[in-house]
Design a protein around this nucleic acid. Structure first.
Length: 291
DNA sequence: GCCCAGGATCACC
DNA sequence: GGTGATCCTGGG
């Protein structure tokens, strides 16, 4: 991989392990859309970003050397080498998932945004989650202009805590409105997500589930997608189907965590992403076949 | 109008 | 520690 800085853009060449669709359309972020074939746009870290890929060349726009080094390099987890991961792991399902999901990467997102996004994700589907978060951002995030269009940053804890329950419900969040409000209030008044990075995985998880609307699965999403815990393993319905179909595993949630830890070890979270992507695409394909 | 998908919570054992 | 009802809403 090589990085070059053009005027207003960052160009990454030799990117064999970077596939925008696999990165943005895998349930880890809800703020990017494919606006044209192969062109993804979204807002992260309070900035607009357009990501395109041609061959093995990835372009980030608009960007600069400072922004790349300060934000996007870490956001796209570019210091982790995904190339050889799980290639000869002796686990057929994982090897296949890895092959299929090649180019997928874990994003390092902002903890507060990730917390709220996954509270919203509970008992919900991708399309609705996206809509709810967009309306929340439109309503109380900081606006900024880019190419003549207005975009909204994800709200800060205090901005979100200031929204009343009724307004949150009007965004479509339903019964989750009081959870969102109270979690935002707790973070605004001192619940420090950043310090969780220094804790062990079980301790950090114990802290997170103290927040309203955060159970074991949502806590794992925050740990994996925002706080750098690569061993966190979000056990949602999709991944439980994988465990059942390909590993013959049938158990409750806590047994699933133990199984994942034993089976996939310190990279359980990355394995989860490959398996999740594979399973979801497979079922999407099955649905299309049934039409 | 009815049923379904999707996790956290709460009451209860 | 585990089980099952409930919450909300878009979509079939």
């Amino acid at each position: 991989m090589e990085v070059s800085f053009l005027s207003g853009a960052v160009v990454l060449t030799g990117m064999t392990c970077f596939e925008p669709r696999h990165i943005f359309d895998n349930g880890q972020t809800f703020r990017f859309d494919e606006v044209a074939h192969g062109v993804f746009e979204g807002v992260a870290h309070g900035r607009f970003l357009r990501v395109t890929k041609n061959g093995d060349t990835v372009t980030l726009f608009p960007s600069s050397a400072d922004e790349y080094n300060g934000i996007w390099k870490n956001y796209f987890d570019l210091e982790t080498n995904y190339d050889g991961l799980f290639c000869d792991c002796g686990d057929e399902a994982l090897r296949k998932g890895r092959e299929y999901g090649c180019g997928l990467r874990l994003l390092n997102q902002q903890p507060f945004e990730t917390l709220i996004a996954f509270i919203v994700s509970a008992n919900n589907n991708l399309k609705r989650i996206k809509g709810i978060l967009r309306r929340i951002c439109d309503r109380c995030g900081q606006p900024f202009l880019f190419e003549g269009k207005t975009y909204y940053a994800f709200p800060k804890p205090a901005e979100l805590a200031a929204m009343d329950e009724q307004a949150l419900k009007e965004c479509g969040s339903g019964y989750r409105a009081p959870y969102i409000r109270e979690a935002a209030r707790m973070v605004a008044s001192g619940f420090d997500l950043e310090t969780l990075r220094a804790k062990s995985y079980p301790d950090a998880k114990k802290e997170l589930v103290k927040l309203p609307g955060v159970g074991p699965k949502v806590a794992d999403c925050i740990l994996l997608f925002a706080l750098g815990f690569r061993d966190a393993f979000p056990a949602d319905v999709w991944i439980k189907r994988v465990l059942k179909e390909h590993y013959g595993f049938e158990g409750n949630d806590r047994q699933a965590y133990a199984f994942a830890k034993e089976k996939f070890g310190e990279y359980a979270g990355i394995a989860q992403q490959y398996l999740f992507f594979w399973q979801r695409d497979k079922e999407k394909q099955d649905d299309e076949d049934n039409i």
